[in-house]
């Protein structure tokens, strides 16, 4: 408990310092924070233009599609804000030698890596996701009940954890290979599939995005649940899957750390 408190206050301090630096370059902060909005806007406008001319996409209306898109974007933004530094483990810490610094400090090195850089670019994603989901609640008359809000928070946190865990697993390969970014990117970019209803794809892709690279658990199933479509226990699958993936990711991290202790590179 004392440890948890200590880490929480440390994270807060890291975050504060980070914002002090960001505020020094205010224009860049604003551009960065809003940057992802522009990229999301391109996809969203495409959906908007197309859906203006057809009533539904495999039974999904535009509001429902935006709900799926919004849930995914919220989950992604959690990863983007709090765990973006994982991407840089290889090229900014291990290879230049800065990772050694983490190992001579009396705190958890993974915590140190994550706390070292809060990524403000994720704020834009968060806002886009939030607006889409809130818009969905309004337009689709989903009640703002305590249960629904709690479910939403749970789904976003679990979905964010799935993103973080998958990035952690692929980034830990930096302990062995020169450049892990392509590996991480290869897995990460599959999340594009899950911005749209999984049932528009063939069965194989649907299964892959649910069980193999389970980004679908962060968007398609929670959206279905909130929209009152029956997906059974799959509405809750993101929680145990996130827990298992996080545990596996941390195990793999420790294994990578052990390897690093053997080779120092």
């Amino acid at each position: 408990m004392r440890k948890l408190k200590r880490y929480a206050s440390l994270y807060w301090l890291f975050l504060l310092q980070r914002f002090k630096v960001l505020m020094e370059y205010r224009v860049n902060f604003l551009i960065g924070a809003s940057s992802t909005i522009f990229i999301q806007a391109a996809s969203l406008m495409t959906v908007w233009v197309v859906m203006g001319q057809v009533p539904s996409l495999n039974g999904w209306t535009i509001d429902e599609i935006f709900m799926i898109y919004g849930l995914l974007t919220l989950a992604k933004s959690i990863n983007h804000m709090f765990a973006d530094n994982l991407w840089t483990l290889g090229h900014e810490y291990i290879r230049p030698g800065g990772f050694d610094r983490f190992l001579v400090r009396p705190i958890n090195p993974l915590f140190h890596l994550l706390a070292d850089r809060f990524c403000h670019d994720g704020i834009g994603n968060f806002l886009v996701g939030l607006v889409l989901v809130m818009r969905g609640f309004e337009n689709l008359s989903i009640p703002w009940s305590l249960g629904n809000i709690a479910y939403l928070v749970l789904a976003v946190l679990a979905g964010g954890s799935i993103f973080i865990a998958l990035n952690l697993i692929t980034c830990v390969t930096s302990f062995w290979i020169m450049n892990s970014v392509p590996v991480t990117l290869a897995v990460f970019q599959t999340h594009e599939f899950t911005k749209y209803p999984l049932n528009i794809y063939g069965k194989m892709i649907g299964v892959a995005m649910t069980w193999l690279i389970p980004y679908g658990l962060a968007s398609y199933y929670p959206a279905s649940y909130l929209l009152g479509r029956d997906v059974g226990y799959m509405a809750w699958a993101m929680v145990p899957v996130a827990a298992v993936l996080l545990a596996a990711g941390y195990r793999f991290w420790l294994f990578g750390l052990k390897h690093y202790g053997g080779t120092g590179s």
Partner: peptide, 14 residues
């Protein structure tokens, strides 16, 4: 401006 990153992203989205 001080950084090209924002310009890059803006251009990419548009």
């Amino acid at each position: 401006t001080t950084e090209a990153w924002g310009l890059h992203i803006l251009r990419e989205g548009v």
